[in-house]
Structures are given as C-alpha cells and as structure tokens.
C-alpha cells in the first residue's frame, strides 16, 4: 500500500523550502541575464558556488561575522563576472556561453581539488558555518506550524530569510526592468547595434546585467547551503540546467515566472521521486530497482523541459503576444 499522505505532504513542503527559494533567486538572476538582456550565462552554478564557499570560508577560516561573509561572497562574484565579461561581452553571444560553462566547471574543480583542502575541505566540503546565522535568529526555540509545515526555530528562520530575499529581489527586479535602464537592456536583447547607434554604452550595460544577475546567483548559493553542507558536487553544470528549466517553465522574461517555476519544479520533482520510490517498494514496477527509480526523475525533468519548449515556449507567465514574432 502506498502512503499517499506522505508523498503529498513531502511535495507540499517543497513549496516554501529554502532550496526552492534558492533556485527561485538564482533563476531570477538568469532572467536578468537571459530573459531581459539576452546574455547566455551557462555558469550560474559557478556564481552559486562562490556564494556558498565565499560565505563558508570567510566564516570558518577567517572568523568573519555574517554580514562580512556575505560581502565576501558578493565581492567574489562581482570579480568573477568581470573576469567572464571583460573578454567576452564584446564578442558574439555564444562566446559568453562557452566561457561561462567552462569557468563554472573550473571553479568547481578548484573547490574539489585536494590542493586547497585546508580552506575548501576538498571533495567532502565544509560545514559548521551556520552558527553566526543561527545566532541572529529572533525566534525563540520551539516547534511551530501546522500539518506538513511544522518546523523548529532554525528551519523557520532560514525559510523566512530565504523568501524575504526572494521577495525583495523580485521587487527590485520589477523596479529596474520597468525603468529606462530596463528598456536599454531589453533593446540590447533585440539588437545591440541599434542600441549602440542610439548612444548607449552597450558593453557597460551588458556588464552591469552580468554582475547583477550573478550577485542574485551568489545570494541564492548562500540560501542553498543554510539547510545543508557545502559540497562541491552540488555545483555541477546540471545545476545551471535545472535553473534554466525553471526559468523556461515560468517564462524567461518575467518576474513571477522564476519564482512560481521553482515552486512547481520542486513540488513535482518531490512528488515524482516520492511516488516512484514507494511504487517500486510496493512492487508496482517489478522491472525497476530503487536506484533506477531515483534516476527516473531527472529523465522526467528532461522530458518536461522539452514539452515546455515545444508547447509553451513563452513559459507559464510569458506574454503570448511576443510569440507571434519568433525571430
């Protein structure tokens, strides 16, 4: 017999989980890059890794307070964006894609290698950096909530901080996109030479967009490691692709899209894996092992992305009118 209640309540928990918030914020950064400016950043996982390691290393190795650790992570990602952008943003769009995917992998390998073990913890990663953040928690110890949403004080604290960040950055994005600044970057997405001919410093705008969206990714990387440890294997290229999946699901040039997209993505993923695991256990799929069932969910993600791109390329929140003019 399958425990449907457990499957549904696990899935429902993903709605407000800190991981969902982290992916939403990272996808919002990609919306600025890809959806609004037309920059093909395939290295969002690298920006997230810089957030995670920047925060953890500053805290563990240098004893920095929370705010300083956050600043270190953000500073590192600004430098990373500059290194990526300076040589490539003058070139055709595809070069940025190649360079970002490679640079993110290089970062991950640097964090994995034994050479810097004392700082990075190499393949086993880092933990024990949450003390400062937990100390800031104003919620008295105890258990709060109802039904599936019952958590202790720390778990509520990371959810509140995570989602507050998502909301603040969604509002910020909304403000800048509807401003003249947003008009310029949307113009660049359409045709950068035309924008250049109107007297805008296209290179500088692309750089600003790359840095800004990258900083979103970095903050997302920090939220991501609050409920877990920092492990280098989490920052593979597949992380970037999941974030792209979320972005396309919600709508690339939208603000609610990345947020709701992340919720749908995680609820469905949890539902599928919960269902498959229990169904295999119950003997519904005798031809399949537990391990295979675990892999199946990623195949489903792949199929889902293909279906979205084919049948609803503008995403859930995308403007249908835009689609009438596929370039």
């Amino acid at each position: 017999m399958i425990d449907w209640i457990a499957i549904f309540s696990n899935a429902a928990q993903e709605l407000i989980s800190p991981t969902t918030a982290a992916y939403a914020l990272a996808a919002l950064g990609l919306a600025i890059h890809f959806g609004y400016t037309g920059l093909l950043n395939f290295g969002q996982a690298g920006f997230m890794a810089l957030g995670a390691y920047g925060f953890a290393i500053s805290t563990l190795s240098f004893g920095f307070p929370v705010w300083a650790s956050v600043l270190v992570g953000v500073g590192a990602s600004v430098i990373f964006a500059l290194i990526l952008g300076i040589p490539t943003l003058r070139l055709r769009a595809d070069y940025l894609a190649i360079v970002t995917i490679a640079a993110a992998e290089i970062l991950r390998l640097v964090f994995t290698t034994n050479t810097f073990d004392s700082l990075t913890g190499s393949a086993s990663g880092l933990q024990g950096y949450k003390g400062g953040f937990a100390d800031l928690n104003p919620i008295p110890p105890g258990t709060y909530g109802f039904g599936p949403f019952t958590y202790n004080a720390y778990d509520w604290w990371i959810r509140i901080v995570g989602w507050t960040l998502v909301i603040v950055f969604a509002l910020l994005t909304w403000l800048i996109i509807r401003s003249p600044w947003g008009r310029v970057i949307k113009g660049i997405r359409e045709d950068e030479d035309a924008v250049r001919a109107l007297g805008k410093n296209v290179y500088s705008y692309k750089m600003q967009s790359l840095i800004l969206g990258g900083v979103y990714g970095t903050l997302a990387g920090m939220i991501f490691v609050l409920p877990r440890a920092v492990v280098p294997a989490n920052y593979q290229t597949s992380l970037t692709f999941f974030i792209y999946a979320i972005l396309l699901l919600g709508g690339a040039a939208t603000i609610l899209g990345p947020i709701v997209g992340s919720m749908i993505f995680w609820v469905l993923l949890s539902f599928f894996s919960g269902f498959m695991a229990r169904a295999v256990e119950a003997g519904w799929f005798p031809f399949m092992t537990q391990v295979q069932a675990g892999q199946l969910r990623f195949i489903l993600v792949g199929i889902a992305i293909m279906l979205i791109v084919v049948f609803r390329p503008q995403g859930i929140f995308g403007n249908k009118k835009e689609l009438a003019f596929v370039k």
Partner: peptide, 27 residues
C-alpha cells in the same frame, strides 16, 4: 533595426539621450 519585442513607444524613448533613469542606481 527596429527592436521587435519592444513597443513602438519604447523604441522611441530609447532614442532620447541623457536619461537619468538609464543609470542602474537611479533606475
């Protein structure tokens, strides 16, 4: 080079120079 997925009005506004709101911080 019309900017296809911008409205006609946004295309026009993009042409104006010296716009304060085109600065990221002021935007």
């Amino acid at each position: 080079k019309a900017l296809g997925l911008l409205t006609v009005m946004d295309n026009m506004k993009l042409g104006a120079k010296g716009q304060g709101g085109e600065n990221l911080f002021r935007s």
